[in-house]
Simulated assay, not measured.
Amino acid sequence: MSDNELDPTAALPKDEPLTPENMAAEWAAMPDMVDEDGEPEGGIDRLMSQDEIDALLGFSGGDDKGARTGIQAIVESGSVSYERLPMLEIIFERMVRLLSTSLRNFFTDNVEVTLESIRSVRFGDYINSVSLPAMLAVFKAEEWDNFGLVTIESALTYTVLDTMLGGKRGQPAARVDGRPFTSIEINLLRRVVGVVLGDAQAAFNPLSPVTFTVDRIESNPRFVSISRPANAAIRVELRFDMEGRGGSLHVLLPYATIEPIRELLLESFMGEKLGRDPIWENHLATEVWQTDVDVTCVLHETQMPLKRVMKLEIGDTLMFDARPDSVVSLRCGEFMVTEGRIGRVDDKIAVQVVSPLHRSKTTMAAFDSITSHLSSAS
């Protein structure tokens, strides 16, 4: 038996890429291997090459690295992907700069703060990934009427406690497992959380004033259910480095918490006003005031059966329930503008307005929405 009979990729054209679809087709088209008596050969299995295994798992080295196939596509289908919020990155960059100064004054020691990552996660997945022991502080955004979470990992927790209680510099913090945090330790960590939330509040202030207050401190992730497990949240990871020791601090904001300022977070820079061009608005208003519209004067309207209308002939008379002093309606298209009485001025027919104009029910908010869509489309 030749090697080509054992290798299903030998029948593929050289210019055709190896994919799970054509690989499966080749396997299905292969004849069963039989011996001279027509019986299946024993002890010989169909073996997959390394390229076939990579294609099945989705790790084929093609040029299109953004596309995922095979098992990897199934695994990554559960990942959270939400819209990018450019202003959020600017806010937390500003928060890092504020924290670098605040923590140096708080610890009277050199503290380096870096922004590691900003990513979207599911709340349940994040809670399950928290390694114990850890300190979890639930805080409330008063103006947004919702909650957020600050998580201090164990390495940073013991580093902070060791530094605040007079530990020596340059030595790793002692880690004591198997016991809950004491009231003194919780109060010390609450002060650190207060510093972090204070700088976060100052970072959000130019965009949207907000007040962050600590609601409670927990050490068990099961007791911080501030959102549904499947809901999306933004996880901001900050790295604290204190002369070779430190750890990570996470700020978790559910998407429901930042929903009141979502439009502001979509801006590329502070103060950006998308779709509001004063020059364009003034030009639109000028053109609208100079626009000519057709106004129809309706003397009277009546309804009659269709068969009667079909029987009308020249000379027939239609009777209207109206008098010479009856009120007529002035309409612009299907919209009724006002009412008046008909008369004559010189050799022209005139209408005297007897009631105020009917105002449009379109609110100013709806007008702003319409103008924003029009400006975006232009």
Rank of each mutant, 00 (worst) to 15 (best):
Ala256Trp: 00
Met135Lys: 12
Tyr82Ser: 13
Pro209Ala: 03
Lys168Ser: 11
Phe107Cys: 06
Pro260Leu: 01
Ala285Met: 00
Ala10Asp: 06
Met304Val: 08
Glu243Thr: 04
Leu99Gln: 11
Ser49Phe: 06
Asp125Leu: 07
Pro221Leu: 09
Val298Phe: 01
Ser268Thr: 03
Ser329Glu: 15
Val160His: 10
Ser120His: 12
Ser355Lys: 13
Ile184Gln: 03
Gln303Asn: 10
Ser100His: 11
Asp63Gly: 15
Phe367Arg: 02
Thr286Asp: 01
Thr151Val: 10
Glu52Tyr: 10
Asn205His: 08
His358Trp: 11
Lys65Trp: 07
Val195Ile: 15
Glu301Asp: 11
Met310Leu: 12
Met310Lys: 05
Glu5Ile: 15
Ile314Val: 11
Leu252Ala: 00
Leu98His: 09
Ala230Lys: 00
Ser100Leu: 04
Gln171Asn: 14
Asp368Met: 11
Ile370Cys: 08
Thr211Phe: 02
Ala29Arg: 04
Gln171Trp: 05
Leu165Phe: 14
Met48Trp: 08
Ala134Tyr: 06
Ile234Ser: 03
Arg190Thr: 12
Ser248Val: 14
Ile127His: 01
Asp63His: 09
Leu98Ser: 10
Ile44Gly: 02
Lys14Arg: 07
Glu112Arg: 15
Gly66Met: 13
Phe59Pro: 03
Glu267Gly: 02
Pro206Val: 06
Ala285His: 03
Leu266Val: 01
Val34Met: 10
Phe147Met: 01
Ile261Thr: 02
Ile217His: 06
Thr363Leu: 11
Glu153Asp: 13
Ser326Gln: 04
Asp346Gly: 12
Ala174Cys: 14
Leu56Pro: 01
Lys65Asn: 09
Pro221Trp: 03
Tyr158Lys: 09
Leu189Ser: 12
Thr296Tyr: 11
Asp145Arg: 05
Thr371Val: 04
Ala350Gly: 03
Val351Pro: 04
Gly166Leu: 13
Trp27Asp: 08
Leu357Asp: 03
Ile217Phe: 02
Gln201Arg: 14
Asp45Val: 15
Met87Ala: 10
Gly340Cys: 05
Leu161Phe: 04
Glu153Tyr: 10
Asp346Arg: 12
Gly42Phe: 03
Thr69Phe: 08
Leu165Trp: 06
Arg46Trp: 00
Ile342Arg: 05
Ala232Met: 01
Phe106Ala: 06
Met304Cys: 07
Ser329Asn: 15
Pro86Gln: 01
Ser77Phe: 00
Leu252Thr: 07
Asp368Cys: 02
Thr157Pro: 04
Asp292Lys: 14
Phe212Thr: 04
Gly62Arg: 01
Gly170Ile: 14
Val111Met: 05
Val224Phe: 02
Leu252Arg: 00
Val236Glu: 00
Pro17Leu: 07
Glu334Trp: 14
Gln171His: 13
Leu299Arg: 05
Ala25Cys: 01
Pro13Trp: 08
Ala365Tyr: 09
Leu85Phe: 12
Thr163Trp: 14
Ala232Thr: 01
Asn22Val: 14
Asp109Glu: 13
Leu197Cys: 02
Ser77Pro: 00
Arg179Thr: 13
Val193Gln: 02
Ile91Asp: 03
Arg179His: 11
Ser378Ala: 10
Tyr126Asn: 00
Ile314Met: 07
Glu267Met: 09
Gly343Gln: 07
Ala24Pro: 00
Glu259Gly: 00
Met270Ser: 11
Ser355Tyr: 06
Ser360Gly: 13
Ser154Asp: 14
